[in-house]
Write a protein that binds this DNA or RNA. Structure first.
Lengths: 183, 183
DNA sequence: GTCTATATGATGATAGAC
DNA sequence: GTCTATCATCATATAGAC
């Protein structure tokens, strides 16, 4: 079997990803704080110290699970330019939908992840989104309306995570647009 | 000083309330999970075992902090009858605003409170609210719109907790009504 | 009602052999 | 890369004196 064959289940250098997969599943299911390294290692059939070969600390493992969402979000708010608000809401919904499992994990456990400054970062992302949606000079009322819109969409991505995207996104985006007061 | 005088700062039988006050503050500030009984007792100037005279367990203390919100919510969804949706949204906003500090605490730490079944209970409350808002036969689209409305209002009570109620409530309720598609 | 002292049990992490 | 063995730390909770 040639070396580029991807058909084998696991291969050399793959343990790191297997650890991350198991960790993500447990973190999402039962919370970051309630998942111990013992539990993760047991499910993988290895011992606890073995984890430390792949990750410097438990912290490090947690961060590596969250990083993709953070990167995607940072890129989104950095590269976007002001434009059609409905389009922005749609693309933003796609983004949170893509990461909805990790999003649930983060939202349900903000205090356990406080050291990662996630609360403040999410705040900053939202402020930036509001500027992209409504321009730099927003009234307080517009800000509140935008909070209903964006917060409501997040709730949908979480609450209807099991439904098909096509059934949720259009309605959620329209509701958000109405909350925003878009024509 | 007559015995009915309420002017003394603390009195006999008052320790239980003082414990709850300190606990609530610490729970809200730094999370339930990150607050130890040691920390609570130290701030009160008593020892850890003393707490166990007033509460059977740590669990018991946590529950006693959350109970007022739970009771208020249960009563709200139980006693209400279907009626003017805008009025319902307004009264509901008052309710979550009244308990916004504990609400933040709960939402940021749902997984740490998983054993209290709060996730499922909040779900049930929301389902009941949606029936009160839109009647028993709601389409999926209406359900999604209602989720944006109610979830968005909750976000506002949390995010603008420091502002005066009068500046937040009218706008948040109007945005929610628009998300719902109310005329 | 509050104290001292202690039981008990997790957890994250490290040392060093293979 | 993974193991065995172990450490230090911190938590909730209890026993029993005052």
């Amino acid at each position: 079997m040639p070396s580029h064959t991807p058909s084998r289940r696991t291969g050399p250098g793959d343990t790191k990803r297997r650890i991350q997969a198991v960790a993500r599943e447990l973190f999402v299911q039962q919370g970051v704080r309630d998942t111990s390294l013992r539990q993760i290692s047991e499910r993988l059939g290895i011992t606890k110290p073995a984890l430390y070969y792949h990750f410097a600390s438990r912290e490090d493992l947690v961060k590596s699970i969250i990083q993709p969402l953070v990167d995607d979000m940072e890129r989104f708010v950095a590269e976007r330019e002001a434009g059609d608000p409905r389009r922005l809401l749609t693309d933003y919904f796609d983004l949170i939908w893509r990461h909805r499992d990790v999003l649930v994990m983060i939202v349900r456990e903000l205090s356990a992840l406080a050291h990662l400054d996630l609360g403040e970062r999410m705040f900053a992302w939202r402020r930036r989104l509001i500027v992209l949606l409504l321009g730099p000079d927003v009234t307080q009322a517009q800000h509140i309306r935008a909070t209903v819109a964006l917060g409501g969409m997040s709730d949908c991505a979480v609450e209807y995570a099991h439904l098909p995207l096509d059934e949720v996104k259009p309605v959620a985006v329209e509701a958000a647009a109405d909350a925003l007061g878009l024509p």
